[in-house]
Amino acid sequence: MSSLKKLTTPSGIISALAIDQRGALRRMLGEDASQESLENFKSLVSENLTAHASSILLDPEFGLPAAAKRDENCGLLMAYEKTGYDSTVAGRLPNLIANQSVKRLKEAGADAVKLLIYVDVDEDKAINDCKQAFVERVGSECVAEDLPFFLEIITYDAAISDKREYAKIKPHKVIEAMKLYADPRYHVSVLKVEVPVDMNFVEGFGDDYVYTKEEAAAFYKEQAKISNLPFVFLSAGVSAQMFHDTLNFAKASGSTFNGVLCGRATWAGAAKAYKEAGSDKAAEWLQTIGKSNIIELAKLVEELATPIK
């Protein structure tokens, strides 16, 4: 398998910027946002922030112009999945971008490929079997093209929508999903995962909690022992401060996470500026607040994360 060095800092930590959002970004910029607007916004983020990131995660649908504007020392991850899922069909089944393949993403300059799947380990076996075969196929493609395979896992429960109720079972969902897809048959190079608890429901982080700090810390330790695969945390749309607090808590709890793939916590304010005042204001936000966000995060991650050997 190809090396991860193009995607890490010199010390071996992944400090990556994620802006492969498509549907979510269109909602942030306005439902009537054009393809040109999405491409322009991604380019602004890439141009202004990638000097401070080890790599950037983009999509081939709106992100190719942004890929061309990234810093010369910044590696490139490319998303392979279609955005979202068909809510009329059970299982949140994954699908791939119709006109893409790992070979084509490599030809477009990708140093690694990322696939997102939604996982409920307790859902119907037939549904999970489909997802497992799907990941196997993508893993085999990545092996054939000698590209690292990043698997992003977003967990859920098919029967629970209440956030507090889900928080009670989230550690089980996250940890068991990681355990499943760490199996060598999937050829995953790096797991991109949620933290094992909803920090809004941890003692001291929210008004209403379902875990004490000690209980939450134990889940971070358990997650870190699941496999020998490198794993990075996604920011899940939380604020920059909450993400920083979460990473500090993770480290103090004994987590050996290998970095982050952080999106909206870094650049969300620029999307608001772009929608309300245009690209110049968005660029101004990125050059000030956005730059500060990513520099602070990169410094923190360098201090807290475990280098990939």
Rank of each mutant, 00 (worst) to 15 (best):
N258Y: 03
K299S: 14
V135G: 07
A68E: 15
Y156F: 15
A305E: 07
D32C: 05
Y181N: 07
I289P: 00
S140C: 11
F62M: 09
D124R: 08
I169C: 14
A265Y: 03
R27G: 03
F249K: 04
S255T: 05
N73Y: 07
D32G: 04
S235C: 11
P171D: 11
S140R: 07
N128D: 02
F231V: 05
C142Q: 00
E107A: 14
Q21G: 12
K103T: 06
G84A: 15
L180Q: 05
K106E: 09
P10L: 15
C262I: 01
V174Q: 09
G269T: 00
E31T: 03
G75I: 09
Y211I: 01
L116F: 04
S3M: 13
V174L: 06
A24Y: 07
A236G: 07
D86K: 12
Y274L: 00
G259D: 04
V121C: 09
M199G: 08
V195H: 12
P184R: 09
K275I: 01
G109Y: 00
S34L: 08
E107S: 10
V190Q: 02
S87E: 13
R104H: 09
L234N: 06
T246L: 10
A79C: 10
A53D: 11
A66V: 13
N293H: 15
D86R: 07
V138L: 15
E39A: 11
V232K: 13
A265M: 08
I169L: 15
L96W: 11
E81D: 14
G30T: 08
K6P: 07
F150M: 04
D208S: 12
Y211T: 02
V193Y: 00
Y118F: 12
A240H: 15
I97C: 15
D198H: 00
P94D: 09
A79P: 12
V102M: 12
D162E: 14
D162Q: 13
P60E: 04
V193G: 01
A283Q: 10
E72Y: 05
H52T: 06
L25G: 10
E39I: 03
P148G: 14
A98C: 07
F205L: 08
I289A: 09
W267S: 08
H187W: 02
D183M: 01
R185D: 04
E81P: 05
P307M: 06
N95W: 09
V138G: 02
L229I: 02
E194C: 00
S15A: 14
A298G: 14
F205Y: 03
L304Q: 12
H244I: 05
F41Y: 15
D120L: 00
Q35H: 05
P196N: 04
F149R: 05
F219E: 12
V232G: 14
D183L: 01
R22K: 13
W285V: 14
T306H: 00
S54Q: 12
A67M: 14
E145M: 10
E61G: 08
I127A: 03
N40E: 14
K42C: 04
V45S: 15
S15I: 11
D32V: 06
